[in-house]
Each structure stands twice: as C-alpha cells, then as structure tokens.
Nucleic acid binder design. Structure first.
Lengths: 225, 225
DNA sequence: TTATGTTAGATAGTATTACTATCATTCAAA
DNA sequence: TTTGAATGATAGTAATACTATCTAACATAA
C-alpha cells in the first residue's frame, strides 16, 4: 500500500502554494536543509536561490519573506505532529499511556518516511528546537495572529490539553501545561546539547533525558491529590 | 541612606565598558527603550545612534554587534535578579516560602529604583520576556558559551536549583526544573498577552496567572512522594 | 608647558540583505 | 492557435552591518 500524506498549510502563510509546483517543493526541502545548516539569522533567500538554481524573484513569488517561509515549515511540522499523535493514540485506552506516547513524540525525531521528495526529519527536528520560538517572538505577533497562522500550534496544544483533562478533569491549567511541555521539550533538548549546566543530563542523551524529566513533571502535576 | 548598585557584566560581552562613560550609559539606557519599542529584529545601531545623538562608530566601539548589546542587557538583568533574590530571601527560614518568593520575582516587574540614570524596568521586563531566548538560540551558541557570557543565567538557575534541593533533596531534576520555571515564566506571560489560547488565563492578569500556574507546577513536582 | 593618549565626531566606503520592477521566454491548457 | 501562468534574466533601491581614517577635544604625565 502506498499513499500520499499532505498537510494543507493555511494560504495566509504563502503567496503561492509551494506544494503545487516542482520549484515550490524544492524551496521547502532546501530551505529546511539551509536553515539547519546556517541557522535562521544567516539564512537568506539569495543563498536559497543559489542552492536550488533559481532566482530570488522566484522565491519571493512563493513567500513574502523568510519569516513566512519558516512559519510554513513549522505549520507543516505541527500539523504532521498532530496527525502522528492522533494516529499513534488509536486503540490506546489508558489515558496515562496516551500521555506518555505524546511525550515520546514531542521529544524524539519524526520517522523518516519513504518518498524521495521527503523532508530531512532530523534537520526539521533541530529547526523546531532552535528556531520555532522566533516565529511568534516578534513585534508583529498580534497582527500575524489575526491571520490564523498559528492555528496548527494551537490545535496541537488543544489536543494535548484535552488528553490532560481526560486523565484528570479537575486539573486547572491543561493548556498552560500543554504549551509548557511543548516549549520545555525544545528548551531542555537544546540546553542538554549546548548549555548542559542548565539541565541535569548526565548519562542519557538529550532526547531520553528530556522525555524522563517531562514525564515526571507532567504526571506529578496532574496526578497529585 | 543612599547607595549605588552596580553589576559588573563580564568584559567578554563588550569592547569598552559602557558603565565607565556617559555615552556608554546612554547607549544601554536608550537601547532598552528602543529594543522595547521596535523589537530586537528592527532595532539597529543606526537608529540607536540617532536616538542618542551619536554616531554608529561610537556604538561599535562599545559593542561588536547588537547581539552582544542584548547579551549585556540580559546579563545585567540576570545579575540584578540574582541579587534581588538573595536579598529578598534573607531571614526567610521556610524553604517553601523561599520558593514562592522566587516565583513572584520571576513573574513580576522589577522595582523601579530611584536615580535618574535608571533603566526603565517595565521595558526591561518585556525585553526579557520577548527577546531573551534570542541570545542563545543562535548557530554560534557553542563558541560564545566558551567565553562564559551565560554565567549570570547559569548562576541564577543554579541558585534556584539549590533552593529546590534544599526543599526536597531527593528531587532528581533541580536544574532542569529551574530552567523550565524561568523559561516558562517568560512564555506563559507572553502567551497570556498575545496568544491566550495557549494558556488558561481568564480573569487574572498575565503575571498573576503565570505565578499561580508555576507555583502549582513547582510544588506538585517537588512535594510529591 | 608640552607631549601623549584616550575618546568621540565626522565622513566615507563596502558587502550584503531585503526587497520591487520589468520584460522576455517557456510551456501547458482552452 | 491563442492565452495565460510560471519562471528566468536583469536591474535597481533602501537599509543593514559593518570597517576605516582623520580630526578635535580634553585630561594626564613628563
């Protein structure tokens, strides 16, 4: 069986749908490689254009600026994570096991699926960890939020919050806990790798350590009397 | 009684000590106002130079680039917070009350001290919330970390971790919990203001809500059997 | 007093970034 | 066969992120 997964990112994020054309798909795929390699600050449309043997003008026809391109990539990621979550939670009855599965998903790499136009999941994961907060930590956050471009992130957060409430209906901060788990999963992985004094990693890798810490934090928060 | 508080920021952060000259102090003070007003991305040395009626060259003699200037401001802030923490914890015996005091400090504005060369604490607070992660979420993090420029942040994190261990010596993740509390205090305040769906704020203000959420999270994590 | 050094101002200049605009070409659908 | 949509090629602008040099002011040391 071979099927194609496609996540429709809101058209507010792009000028022309990159999924619809060959160049568009190359833009996204190479953008992921380049942002990973250079970091978002050093990433430019000029460098991307050289990489894909196209012109800057072509890329500007798809995205207003590099901030929107990053937003596109992250929205794709958040939608994908939500899909994997719903898929992975099928047939699990125990709400505790559900939440454990969610933490594993948040702290470990996405599976590298087949198909040669596939994005590099390891790079994508690192981009999410190091660059994701840059899409909302901007002066224009209120205006761009009106365009509903953060919906996939809010949806994911809402899903996890619903699982928390399912496990403990009396817990008062399901959404804040949910967004804290997502953000902390990024920070703790980043700190474990580059600023380990801000964490308690020792023998474990960044991902296993983060999963352990977050599970402890989550279940103590919601299973406490 | 009138005394002068001064926090020595590591000389690795600047080229010339801004505390030592009139222009230097104006650079810091106006940088805080401008970064607050424009956001870090739109803040430039040119705009700052115009603001303080100096030239770009003058500012470049104090700081290598705007990233270093932001780092200076944050290091000053982290040192100040650590001082206020140690000061505010004097004569408190109860470790629980100590930790509650810390959360209040992390989630509420700094006191506006007297002295006319004083930084705007409200702006400073907003800068910490919205811009602080940008100093370490960069590709160069490993190199700049070697210069010990994140020491004030690590020290603050270590202090809070020590209080956590004091309250519960068996808790396994004092430093990760500490950095999570600091980061979450920023994120939850930011989300409460601009992306409230990611939180559970309702009637409270962003700061009071964040304090309530964090206290609940902290004490359940460390007082659980 | 003169010499020296430090600091800032004034001015200039460069490479790169972040776009915008125009026109020609290709190619696929109507 | 025509039309239109997408891309390429080319050009250009304003702003950014610096670097360099020379001069003036001023404080200090010989």
């Amino acid at each position: 069986m071979d099927f194609h997964l496609n996540f429709q990112v809101s058209h507010k994020v792009y000028l022309r749908d990159p999924e619809g054309t060959e160049v568009g798909r190359k833009i996204i795929k190479s953008a992921i490689d380049l942002i990973y390699e250079l970091g978002f600050e050093h990433f430019t449309f000029r460098k991307l254009a050289v990489e894909i043997h196209a012109t800057e003008a072509t890329i500007y026809r798809y995205f207003e600026n590099k901030h929107r391109l990053l937003l596109y990539i992250l929205n794709w990621y958040w939608s994908y994570i939500e899909f994997l979550m719903m898929f992975g939670l099928q047939n699990i009855q125990d709400t505790r096991v559900k939440l454990e599965t969610v933490i594993e998903l948040l702290t470990h790499e996405l599976p590298q699926s087949s198909g040669n136009m596939d994005y590099n999941k390891r790079f994508l994961n690192q981009i999410v960890i190091a660059e994701s907060s840059k899409v909302y930590l901007v002066k224009e956050v209120e205006e761009i939020n009106k365009e509903a471009v953060f919906k996939p992130y809010k949806d994911l957060c809402g899903r996890i919050a619903a699982l928390i409430t399912e496990h403990n209906p009396t817990y008062a901060y399901p959404r804040s806990l949910s967004s804290t788990l997502i953000e902390a999963s990024h920070h703790q992985q980043f700190f474990s790798s580059y600023l380990p004094k801000l964490t308690d990693v020792e023998h474990h890798g960044a991902k296993d350590f983060t999963a352990m810490f977050l599970k402890d934090l989550l279940f103590k928060a919601i299973e406490h009397p």
